[in-house]
Design a protein around this nucleic acid. Structure first.
Length: 844
RNA sequence: GGGGCGAUGGCGGAAUUGGUAGACGCGUUGGUCUUAGGAACCAAUAUUUUCGGAUGUGAAGGUUCGAGUCCUUUUCGCCCUACCA
């Protein structure tokens, strides 16, 4: 039998799809559209297994939807601005543009080898001026709508490299490349007013019922809405301070007040700037490490001021005011009141400084001696020790009543706070979208007129190792508008801006006068299914949602707020890790397996240590190159395996055995196909029974259901079952037409997963993929059912019978069954539970 | 500290609304064919057994005729988040 030549056949189909523009999408208002989008890649130069998985999942869906008759939009592009290009360019003294473009062409070649049903005519690249000029236009629009503003904000400054560092470039408080201690530096930066939409972004999450709950919860926590109130505390002081305002979610614990704590960045800090002790304290606060753990475990420390705060509910309670390291300026008002009895941080702080701990919530109504020892009590209960609040149920009743009282007496007011901060979009980098702003000689910002867009990046042949290249590009920086001299903004936009609207651009990628065409967007948007990694659960997805809100804001043309109807987050691709005897990571290609043990290829006496399977990463050397896999096994094998072992939302383990088995399975399918081809030629007259037809119907139902639920791993199992069924049944002399008809349906159902193979087989059958085969409900019914017989809830046997058997008839059969009757003989039946065609449970 | 998810054979994983636990694949074992096989094909594969059964879905309870599935408690693992007042 002829071997399946995947190279020949995959090439043939790929060039056919290319030539015919099979996947090119056009608006057709008579057809229902389906917009299938996978997160576009950063052009690093090589695709990795994560891409293979992501794009295979998306491709299965896109092909399935197309067969179902949807007008499918399935585009691809490049998230091509960003730091790797800039780093590579600095290192190799070349131009980020050519580096990026060469990477794109390499990766495009690799992606095409996967046989994806992508409309390559819509390819976009965010680093192209054709793309980013529209982004600059959007920036100006948002500016006009008041959604863009400038303010001073701290950045991580590397004093040696003379550059701003991203958070992930700061390692243990030091610059990742220079090793210099990172300084906090205040810079004027641009912000998108995402807070403006906090409430909408939170509320709309409820409508996104095709999003994973996990992602919605993460976004909800990120937005972080909390209900509380702001309270005014009168201050006694020799300084010119009369009042401090605090935000709290627990006003009902106000009688437990024992101190106020301020952030060192609080405006009142100005009174202490000349106080040496305070300056020392402030330094100490900023020097506690930046790692998450060290922040959480840092000791609570404070600086005591000479201010005294008065409890608004009882003028006789006077407490000290501290600056404290655990109070953040950018949440609430940068000032909190301390109630040590019912907040662990406050308790830690109070213990250190010997402050009063007065419990005001007791878990039990009658327990008025309730006291606090090691742990603050944060649970529910009843208010006590609190004058007129005593006895109120906490927290529901007590919080409402307290706020009520505070408002009536003008001591404070109800307030909703969000954790979400405005989106800082300035990056002090070269390889990004220039911000279309100029400054006059007084430093006032001015928009670049729309007709002067795009603001293109200047070409710089050699990036120097340090500093911001745009800041040094003197010729570029100077610009005349209407004969007035200006200096350009030298910051570029965060690359998250680029990816916040690319899904709109795909709808009309060639439109020159605006970022998108309204009619096209109205037809294609929203994205019906968005597929990508869960690592983008918060920022990218939230920013994209914000961007849609911002574009729609004050614009009646656009009435779309949520860009992604469905979201699917796929798991990672993992691989075993290997280490040699010197504990160095070893790559899978350096290893040979002999008798189940793994040895170094170049030194077969040395066994390697097999570590746990972890997500593929270069540092652990456990990556597998997709290009090699496709070269050796073909795209269909790779697609089959990447889907087979685990549900798409979970991590999958790549294994050599696995890919080999997928490869072999395709060969088996090919052999089966050849046998069927021979059978058809024989042209049998006999039409045995409708066995094959029934099987096909069941198969189609399973595949369809599994496609609908993203249970792609089960589809592969279904294919194996189908193979095993057909290879056993094929010599039963089916009538030619019956066989062809059913086998064709099966082949079409296989095309989403292994498109090259299935299409080739279809052509052999003188057919081609057209429509998704429907199944006949009536053929799903079984002729014979297995009914489980339980005695006292334990399974004791099975009865094979016709469907719809009555309880009495079944009981007769049970009594006629030797094995079952012995359990029932001379026993009193107390109760019978009968579920038609499924089960009979007899209680004796 | 807060939040989320999960725990099923040697491994990855199946199991519509509670109703035959372990589909399918990998691995392992035995066999057939072969000069040979790391090929192909066939068979077996949760544990235990006195071959009648008994026990089995991290642990302990509960609801139910019946629980992998529902409820309570608990242990462990992974992920997210980080002093959020």
């Amino acid at each position: 039998m002829e071997r399946y030549n995947f190279k020949l056949i995959e090439d043939k189909w790929q060039s056919l799809w290319n030539k015919d523009k099979t996947f090119s999408a056009k608006i057709d208002k008579n057809k229902k559209k389906f917009y299938c989008l996978e997160m576009f890649p950063y052009p690093s130069g090589k695709i990795h297994m994560g891409h293979v998985r992501n794009y295979t999942i998306g491709d299965v869906l896109a092909r399935y939807k197309a067969l179902q008759g949807y007008n499918v939009l399935h585009p691809m592009g490049w998230d091509s601005f960003g730091m790797p290009a800039e780093n590579a360019a600095r290192q190799n003294k070349l131009d980020p543009k050519s580096w990026t473009e060469s990477n794109i062409s390499k990766m495009k070649f690799q992606l095409k080898k996967l046989g994806l049903s992508i409309d390559w005519d819509r390819e976009i690249s965010t680093c192209s001026p054709d793309y980013y000029k529209h982004q600059q236009q959007f920036f100006l629009e948002l500016y006009d709508k008041g959604l863009v503003y400038r303010k001073e904000e701290y950045v991580n400054w590397d004093p040696i490299d003379q550059t701003v560092l991203a958070n992930e470039q700061v390692i243990d408080g030091k610059g990742w490349r220079s090793g210099a201690v990172v300084e906090r530096k205040k810079l004027n930066q641009w912000f998108f007013n995402i807070k403006r939409f906090s409430e909408e972004l939170l509320q709309n999450l409820d409508m996104l019922n095709q999003w994973p709950n996990k992602v919605k919860i993460m976004q909800k926590n990120w937005i972080g809405k909390s209900f509380g109130c702001e309270i005014n505390f009168q201050i006694e002081s020799s300084k010119n301070v009369s009042e401090i305002r605090c935000f709290t979610t627990r006003p009902d614990t106000l009688f437990g007040l024992s101190f106020l704590a301020l952030s060192v960045d609080h405006p009142l800090a100005k009174f202490y700037e000349n106080n040496k002790e305070f300056v020392k304290f402030k330094k100490q606060c900023s020097s506690t490490g930046t790692t998450e753990e060290s922040i959480a475990n840092a000791e609570k420390i404070g600086f005591k001021t000479d201010l005294v705060a008065i409890n608004p509910l009882d003028k006789n309670i006077k407490v000290p005011v501290y600056f404290a390291n655990f109070v953040l300026m950018d949440y609430g008002l940068g000032a909190v009141f301390g109630c040590p009895a019912h907040d662990q941080r406050d308790l830690d702080f109070a213990k250190k400084y010997n402050l009063k701990v007065k419990p005001v919530v007791t878990p039990n109504y009658d327990d008025l001696n309730f006291d606090i020892e090691e742990n603050a009590y944060t649970g529910p209960g009843y208010i006590f020790n609190s004058s007129f609040l005593n006895g109120l149920k906490c927290p529901d009743e007590s919080i409402i009543k307290t706020i009520d009282y505070l408002e009536k007496n003008k001591l404070g007011e109800k307030k909703i706070n969000f954790r979400l901060k405005d989106w800082g979009i300035s990056r002090q980098r070269y390889w990004g979208c220039p911000i279309p702003i100029v400054y006059d000689n007084k430093g006032n910002p001015k928009k670049i007129p729309s007709n002067m867009l795009p603001v293109e990046l200047p070409k710089i042949d050699q990036l120097e190792p340090t500093g911001n290249p745009l800041d040094k590009a003197d010729d570029w920086k100077k610009i005349k508008i209407d004969n007035v001299d200006y200096i350009r903004e030298t910051d570029t936009l965060d690359t998250f801006v680029d990816s916040s609207w690319y899904f709109l651009r795909f709808c009309s990628p060639n439109k020159t006068d605006y970022g998108f065409d309204n009619d096209e967007v109205k037809y294609w948007m929203p994205v019906d299914q968005y597929i990508g990694g869960v690592e983008h659960a918060i920022l990218h997805l939230l920013y994209s949602r914000f961007f849609m809100h911002a574009l729609s804001y004050k614009n009646e043309e656009i009435d779309l707020l949520e860009p992604f109807t469905g979201l699917f987050t796929q798991g990672m691709v993992c691989h075993e890790t290997y280490k040699d005897f010197e504990n160095n990571w070893v790559s899978p290609d350096e290893i040979e397996t002999i008798n189940g043990k793994k040895y170094l290829k170049n030194n077969k006496s040395k066994e390697v240590k097999v570590g746990p399977s972890e997500s593929m990463s270069k540092s652990k050397k456990n990556t597998i190159d997709p290009e090699e896999i496709i070269k050796n096994y073909g795209a269909d094998s790779a697609r089959l395996f990447i889907l087979s072992d685990s549900p798409p939302e979970k991590d999958v383990q790549w294994s050599e055995e696995g890919i080999v088995s997928s490869f072999k399975f395709i060969q088996k399918l090919w052999n089966l196909n050849s046998k069927i081809f021979e059978e058809i030629k024989k042209n049998h007259e006999k039409d045995n029974d409708n066995e094959i037809e029934k099987y096909t119907n069941k198969f189609l139902k399973k595949i369809t259901d599994n496609l609908e639920n993203f249970s792609y791993n089960k589809i592969i199992a279904n294919l194996h079952e189908m193979y095993s069924f057909l290879s056993k049944q094929i010599n039963k002399n089916y009538k030619k037409n019956t066989l062809i008809e059913n086998y064709q349906k099966i082949l079409i159902a296989m095309t989403p997963v292994i498109p090259h193979f299935s299409n080739e087989c279809l052509v052999m059958m003188d057919s081609k993929e057209t429509a998704w085969p429907s199944y006949d409900q009536s053929l799903l019914k079984e002729n014979i059912v297995n009914i489980v017989i339980q005695i006292n809830g334990k399974k004791r046997g099975l009865i094979k019978t016709q469907p719809n058997i009555s309880e009495e008839n079944l009981l007769n059969k049970i009594n006629g069954d030797e094995m079952l009757f012995k359990y029932l003989d001379k026993k009193n039946i107390k109760r019978k539970i009968f579920i038609k065609d499924k089960l009979m449970n007899i209680i004796i």
